[in-house]
Write a protein that binds this DNA or RNA. Structure first.
Length: 180
DNA sequence: GATAAGATGTTA
DNA sequence: AACATCTTATCA
């Protein structure tokens, strides 16, 4: 299937968070491919108190300010990495947290943002990597069409700031969404 | 089932 | 000190 084009990442972040549902995330490790379909996302924008970039540009958040289509990978809780798809124009800080994948064999254990990064061996070496370039080892493709009535919207998980924002999206009845 | 605690390192 | 998490233990 086709690699997601640049324009895909330059739309409204919330729209992109929904559009990413049903897309495939593919990781190439030593010419072995691991893939899964995105089933759960969360949107983070610069005007959002829960967004890492809310307080401005720092070394950590710099990737979020790049033009959409690259990865923002950060380390959390001393053990896990989480991966975002950066969205929007250059100098606007926004991204979409990938929270869960429906694994395609032999991939497994991808029902959570920390778990999927562990399974796909996503770490800071992939920070700022171009998600439209297969040579980067991590990229996105169009996979399945998800109709609007299959998308459930809820509040986000694991945050205290702006906890009431309805910016978490997942595919209805999909068993690979992260646990409550 | 539910809730609590612990692991652990980076960030601001 | 808080943290965009997860696993294990300890209840009931």
């Amino acid at each position: 299937m086709a690699i997601l084009p640049k324009e895909f990442f330059l739309q409204d972040t919330i729209k992109t968070a929904k559009n990413l549902l049903g897309c495939k995330l593919i990781r190439n490790i030593n010419n072995e491919k691991f893939e899964g379909m995105i089933v759960e996302t969360e949107a983070y924008t610069q005007d959002d108190p829960a967004c890492h970039a809310f307080r401005g540009l720092t070394q950590r958040t710099a990737p979020m300010f790049k033009e959409g289509g690259v990865a923002y990978v950060y380390f959390i809780y001393g053990m896990y990495h989480c991966m975002n798809v950066v969205t929007g124009k250059e100098n606007t800080a926004s991204g979409v947290l990938i929270r869960a994948l429906e694994p395609i064999p032999p991939l497994k254990n991808t029902n959570g943002p920390g778990k999927l990064c562990k399974s796909l061996q996503i770490n800071k070496s992939l920070n700022e990597t171009n998600l439209r370039d297969k040579n980067s080892g991590l990229w996105l493709e169009k996979f399945r069409e998800i109709s609007p009535d299959e998308i459930i919207t809820t509040t986000r998980i694991g945050i205290k700031q702006a906890a009431e924002y309805p910016r978490r999206f997942y595919i209805k009845d999909n068993p690979h969404v992260s646990k409550k």
